[in-house]
Simulated scan of single mutants.
Amino acid sequence: MIKIYAPASIGNVGVGFDILGAAIKPINGNHLGDCITVTLSNKFTLENKGVFSNKLPKDVKKNIVWKCWLKFCNVINENVPVSIVLEKNMPVGSGLGSSACSVVSTFFAMNKICNNPLNSQELLSLMGELEGEISGSIHYDNVAPSYLGGLQLILEDSQIISQQLPCFKNWLWIVAWPGINVSTAEARGILPKKYTKEICIKNSRYLSGFVHSLYSKQPDLAARLMRDFIAEPYRIKLLPNFLKTKKEIKKIGAMSCGISGSGPTIFAVSDDIEIAQKISLWLSKNYLQNNTGFVHICALDLKGARIIG
């Protein structure tokens, strides 16, 4: 038996659409992610547990975990009968890499219990493929940080899919999920098919400047450059009062603020715990739409997916 935890993640990190992703962990020590327990058995079984398990499809073959298991068995060309327990602690369609948590933890667990037939690059490639089947296009900005930890730059080079970037250890990442859902496929479908040359140049300048500021240790510059010209202007209609919320938390003292992945979760960055707490309190009172929503003050999760039992 093996139990794997895969952390939540912030896709895009504002300035890096489909190119940047950050794994996060609440500073209070709680887990924010999914757990998978896999036991070798005589047939495949799947049990769903956890806070958000009631949101999963009743048909096992529509469950992401089953799809991962089947894909893994096909790749290694062996039917591996297992009993799987999914602890679904992440809300579906939240913008925090919920599907990635399930994908990463399942592939990681299956590889471990089968004595690692796939290397990390092969495993990450499978994770991206499965994410693509769910959302409509292959992207690694959630699976890579959830699997590898930290702030990841997606390269999709023939030999290297993703590499970790340095980041500022004192940065706090406040995430707020309002308690409503946004389909990743819908959020991607709302984007234009083409962008102007000016927007492409501007986005490239901000993204390259952001990466430069990380390596040259300029946190204020990095925060100023965390702007989204690709998705945010079109996705704000999917989020409750986003522009007002952004303005208010900037007024409180947030260094930066943006949409996490496809939304509706938003994130803010601060290097001061008191400001982070004020932002968290304001978001709890003003951004959450119901009692299932949540706000967490997080740090980067540098470990990524790991064995916890």
Rank of each mutant, 00 (worst) to 15 (best):
Val60Asn: 02
Lys62Pro: 02
Trp66Leu: 02
Cys68Met: 12
Trp69Met: 11
Phe72Arg: 01
Val82Ile: 14
Ser83Tyr: 06
Ile84Phe: 06
Val85Pro: 07
Val85Asn: 15
Glu87His: 09
Lys88Phe: 03
Pro91Lys: 01
Ser94Phe: 02
Gly95Asp: 04
Leu96Arg: 02
Ala100Gln: 04
Ser102Tyr: 04
Val104Leu: 09
Phe107Trp: 12
Phe108His: 04
Ala109Phe: 13
Ala109Asn: 06
Met110Val: 09
Ile113Asn: 03
Ile113Arg: 00
Cys114Pro: 00
Asn115Gly: 10
Asn119Cys: 09
Leu123Ser: 10
Leu124Gly: 06
Leu126Gly: 05
Met127Glu: 15
Gly128Trp: 01
Leu130Pro: 02
Ser135Glu: 06
Ser135Val: 14
Gly136Leu: 14
Ile138Glu: 13
Tyr140Glu: 09
Asp141Pro: 05
Pro145Val: 08
Gly150Ile: 00
Gly150Arg: 15
Gly150Cys: 14
Leu153Ala: 11
Ile154Phe: 10
Glu156Leu: 11
Ser158Trp: 08
Gln159Lys: 10
Ile160Pro: 03
Leu165Met: 13
Leu165Trp: 09
Pro166Thr: 11
Cys167His: 14
Cys167Met: 10
Cys167Tyr: 14
Lys169Ala: 12
Asn170Ala: 05
Asn170Arg: 09
Trp171Glu: 02
Ile174Ala: 10
Ile174Gly: 07
Val175Thr: 09
Ala176Leu: 09
Asn181Trp: 02
Ser183Gln: 08
Ala185Cys: 12
